[in-house]
């Protein structure tokens, strides 16, 4: 069937609602943020409409570069870990019975209902010296005495992976369910063991899905600001933590906006780069 190009205004009406939503929930807030990022900060009061670049200038220091670098590194690491865990997991899940799949998905959805705060506190208890998991290891004779596993980078990473994993699985699930199971079988009849076939047929066949999922988890992890505070030391605080400090505790909206704009631009640039590299590889 051939689709005809829209001719009259009425042909565009199906686009009106999504377009409106995009404007209301994205264009307007984001434009406001960009505008505020150029406003003048008044330390005794709030801000006054203006056009100054001080807010961006303040950001361009090695200190913020370090924090930004850490935030990006953390988000990339969370994305890579999540996809490495979720992809094989989801694949195996799609091989289970419908009932088992439903149970797992309902379980994962219920994890999504946990707020970042609850996840943070649960993990801080789990990693604590007094009530944490190491007490179990001691009871099992694996360790001599319980230790605190937080605040550490590992604790931050574990918490964030835990938080992002259900999203990752739910994003990967439809693609893996739709994946033609005979692709793997074909590889097996051609002499590939199931594990080999998984890596050189299933994984590359879903390359675009994997890249899209990586980007989604990356962006998701970039916005995390509670878990780094609860599970990490100050040097594990992300840029989002500092943005929150500025916006909520210092009432410095212009600077917070400038940092947020910067973060968005850097993330967009990274996402764009990923897609560009992906396209070039595909073309080969």
């Amino acid at each position: 069937m051939r689709r005809e190009a829209p001719k009259s205004f009425a042909d565009y009406t199906p686009l009106l609602f999504p377009g409106l939503m995009l404007v209301v929930f994205f264009v307007v807030p984001f434009s406001t943020m960009i505008a505020v990022s150029f406003f003048k900060r008044n330390p005794a009061g709030f801000y006054t409409p203006d056009f100054v670049i001080d807010n961006y200038a303040r950001f361009l220091t090695t200190f913020f570069a370090g924090v930004l670098g850490f935030s990006l590194m953390l988000a990339v690491l969370v994305a890579v870990c999540c996809v490495s865990i979720a992809f094989p997991f989801t694949y195996l899940l799609t091989k289970r019975s419908r009932r088992a799949q439903t149970l797992w998905l309902v379980g994962l959805l219920s994890v999504l209902s946990l707020s970042e705060v609850i996840i943070g506190f649960a993990w801080s208890t789990l990693f604590s010296q007094t009530a944490g998991i190491t007490n179990l290891f001691v009871a099992l004779g694996l360790m001599d005495k319980p230790v605190a596993l937080l605040p550490t980078f590992g604790a931050v990473l574990a918490g964030m992976i835990y938080q992002a994993l259900p999203y990752t699985i739910l994003v990967l699930y439809p693609a893996l369910v739709r994946l033609d199971p005979t692709l793997l079988e074909a590889a097996r009849t051609l002499g590939a063991s199931p594990v080999k076939a998984f890596f050189n047929v299933v994984t590359p066949a879903l390359r675009n899905t994997i890249v899209a999922t990586l980007i989604m988890v990356f962006v998701f992890a970039l916005g995390s600001y509670l878990l780094p505070q609860i599970l990490g030391r100050p040097r594990h605080w992300t840029l989002s933590v500092l943005i929150t400090d500025q916006a909520i505790y210092q009432s410095n909206m212009p600077f917070a906006a400038a940092m947020a704009v910067f973060l968005v631009l850097i993330s967009l640039a990274l996402v764009g780069l990923t897609l560009l590299v992906g396209r070039r590889e595909n073309a080969l």
Binding site: R41, P43, R58, G66, R235, Q250, N252
Partner: peptide, 16 residues
Amino acid sequence: SKADWINQKWTELIVG
């Protein structure tokens, strides 16, 4: 009066 300056130094102190 010195909010931003103190805040910046403070953040660098504990994060840095």
